[in-house]
Nucleic acid binder design. Sequence first.
DNA 1: GTCTACATAGAAAGCGCTTGCTGTCGCGTC
DNA 2: GACGCGACAGCAAGCGCTTTCTATGTAGAC
Lengths: 348, 348
Amino acid sequence: MTVTLADVAARAQVSPATVSRVLNGNYPVAASTRERVLKAVDELDYVLNGPASALAAATSDLVGILVNDIADPFFGIMASAIQSEIGGPGGRAGGERLAVVCNTGGSPERELTYLTLLQRQRAAAVVLTGGAIEDAQHKAAMDAKLRKLADAGTRVVLCGRPQAPETGAIALTFDNRGGGQELTEHLIRLGHRRLGYIAGPEERTTTRDRLEGHRDALAAHGIEEDPRWTVHGRYDRRSGYEATLELLRRDPSLTAVVAANDSVALGACAALRESGRRIPDDVSVAGFDDLPFSIDAVPALTTVRLPLTEAGARAGRIAMGREEPPPGGIASVRGELMVRGSTAGPRG
Amino acid sequence: MTVTLADVAARAQVSPATVSRVLNGNYPVAASTRERVLKAVDELDYVLNGPASALAAATSDLVGILVNDIADPFFGIMASAIQSEIGGPGGRAGGERLAVVCNTGGSPERELTYLTLLQRQRAAAVVLTGGAIEDAQHKAAMDAKLRKLADAGTRVVLCGRPQAPETGAIALTFDNRGGGQELTEHLIRLGHRRLGYIAGPEERTTTRDRLEGHRDALAAHGIEEDPRWTVHGRYDRRSGYEATLELLRRDPSLTAVVAANDSVALGACAALRESGRRIPDDVSVAGFDDLPFSIDAVPALTTVRLPLTEAGARAGRIAMGREEPPPGGIASVRGELMVRGSTAGPRG
DNA sequence: GTCTACATAGAAAGCGCTTGCTGTCGCGTC
DNA sequence: GACGCGACAGCAAGCGCTTTCTATGTAGAC
């Protein structure tokens, strides 16, 4: 029914071993033989059996990419960059590797389960993107899993996630704290003193780091923070919209709203506009990430640009062993403040 | 070194066969035995060898999802919906399947290569999203490949792609033509007579269908189309920006611009604003897809809403055999016109 | 008390491929 | 002219699992 290596061998009048060698190209095979084999492969329309070959060779060409939400361009952009480097068809690298993009939805259990699934497939490498969950128990479980993967020969790279020491993973972390600080600093310098902050979900490193950066800036300028000025939500537009209404209810005199990311900022803009406030005349708004749509907001969003494509590409190369890991196994990637139209001095 | 089934069997004092049966749960095993095995699995921290199991069982739990551009939410949303239904961890379906998201970048070769890779992995199912390339030769190659996949037992589902008869694939197509017509119809009814159209890349079914819908509407209203009014570009913001400048150069008197999709429309808005035109007072703008950010454009974008999540979910279920395929193996999914602030009658 | 039937466990034969080792040539070397 | 060696090709032993078929024990059935 399905054609196997042996069929090809028979047709080409060689042994299966030879066919395998031709296909893998890591053993001297006479040109004439090779051609005969290739011809047979073509005629029979032979397709290698991946599982069988993975079993025999004890290696696989699957690479796992874990993302929180594939529908979010933040992750989509990174996934795309990673994939372009791991050597799938058309990728820069040779070989033909399959990227397995796993959508965890931010759920700890799924994260773990996907890792097990990848371990089961004997993945060649795994790249984990985005912030981590801060629950101690989950973190321990994750670290143990990562350690095991690394021990089994799977290269593990973290992209935009804090280092997990002792796990053997390489980490490319984003300087969320520094970026957050710079952003709020910018607002303070413009003259803002009452700043609302829409944070992401609690218990996530990204959320905490950005929030801490924000508070660093406030503290550095001797601004005492009102607890009412911080609201937690999800990393999406809807959440930004609702959180802003809440913020406005709590303190209608806010002159600036800093959002956990650009999507949240967009929601904030919508809420502010609906409440009759002009941006940035009445209230300034700032985002984070600088996703492609941010520049199209009206006014264009002031935000912190994270080099997602570059970081993803680098993570991909490291995962493939095509780039030296950073010294100490960790590198911090900085963001860049992009000042645009959505921020201005208060009472314009 | 690595723990195998046999190790678990030895530890649990049973045969490998029994361990396998416990793990697969499709054969009667006494409760006490099962527990003993499970305990051994746990103690040894055993992880099944995916390739070995796929080889022996001649099945795999991989599901391929082909997308043009994973960084584009259009595809991200569909991929996410598909994945939530194919039964990965946390998905609605049982079992633990791994979704392999393949980024073709719109390249015919990559599309084909990925399909081969998936075939090699003996994927359980494959879902192809987005429009197809219209090149006859490529289409023939694709159809042959799909046919082969289907014959090998891989379920093939097309989501947002025209049917490929004779390939055994189930198709959920978007009614791009109808949506395009409705959209332009709306503009015409508002009084527009000089409409620019920014089409997607040529040779793609999505591009052609939407454009044809546009022309259907023009024809239905006896509006003769000026060839200068159509520009082709990519499906991204940048392209929309440039195409709009070109359109304006060709005919500064246009009163409406219809874009191939929302991203393109956003670029168009930016270009129009920069040229000093107000939206919709001077020029109306319309998009397609209704991606999440469209409602946040200022003014909010008039567009055609495509039920990406619903369609993706349905495609996922069909791919998993959990939903009856539509009669004839094909169903057309309609879009819904969303009239918002970016369109109004010409000359305010 | 023997017989049939069912529930459960094991033996063993692969699944299709890779690869270490073992030939077998043909040619250059002394 | 015998020998050594390099270049190829083949043999065969797995890789770790699934599954058919068979064996065993036990419980009803008569």
